[in-house]
Amino acid sequence: MSFMSPAVRFQNVSRRFGSVRAVDGVSLDIEPGEFFALLGPSGSGKTTCLRLIAGFEQPDEGHIEIFGERADGVPPYRRNVNTVFQDYALFPHMTVGENVAYGLMIKGVGRAEREAKAKDALAMVKLAGYEVRRTAQLSGGQRQRVALARALVNGPKVLLLDEPLGALDLKLREQMQEELKTLQTSLGITFVFVTHDQGEALSMANRVAIFNEGKIVQVGTPSSVYERPASRFVADFVGSSNVLPPEFAAAHGGHAMWTSLRPEKIQISSKSNLVPAACAHATGTVTAISYQGAVTRITVATGKQALIAATPAGTDVRKGDSVTLIWPKSAMVAMGEDA
């Protein structure tokens, strides 16, 4: 891998809007063939990064390379990347087929060839036979697929997806997640997608970059960012976490650092005398119970620190019960100092 240039390389890239540093000194390598997620809350700079790759924005500082070629200063229409827009941006004055064939038409591909390719692309996204429809006649999920076909038909080296599933309802979103993954695997194209939904990022991506305030705070595989969050922000943003202050962590067998403890690692017991040696425990009173279908989240006040435990549904606890919380010491992940 090392001799190959990365699909996308950010070298100390900054982009300012007025006095706001939307992207602030970002360096990042996305490898060829990766399904890469840019994850972060709104305003964290992830969308601006995607737009920098697409070429809609140009960096104020730093450099961007796409497959080893310098991309800063290159307009979008000279880059071999394509974008699936958040609201799809399908052209209303063209049919579905014309939309999909648009990029080919611009390149001067002959009518017969581009129609054949558009047909294949539509078949690939399971919309065979939709060529002559108007975009206004399509549902949200279908528009999404057309947008995908319109981008992929050009054979991009990198496919950019801006909140690709944001506008879809839950069932459709889960289905599209699967389809996008399958598509990415079979095409082998680098996919870079932006999302604020951590569940989506974890389930779809090979690697995730987590953004906060214009900076990347952690890059890694979904399991590494989930299991070993580097900062309190990541612990909080990716999944939910009990963020333990250094004193509390130290008193319970951890390091004297800010520490993340995932709710699902905590077990609830009514007895305090059966704690294995490798585990830590705390006793307290149940203050809130939140039923969430597959799991129930139970908030327990233990002295100064409230802890949330996620337990399988059906756990028999009531508000006000005195309980013991037990968790493996190894589940406590010490984090860096920053926010």
């Binding site: 697409a54 307009p75 979008p76 052209f91 004055h93 990029g103 611009i106 050009n154």
Partner: peptide, 24 residues
Amino acid sequence: NFIEASSDLGADPRQTFRTVIFPL
């Protein structure tokens, strides 16, 4: 968005004008 989508799909500003902006 339409203008960006058009340039993303390879159309230079003149082509975008002719095929997207003017028809709309």
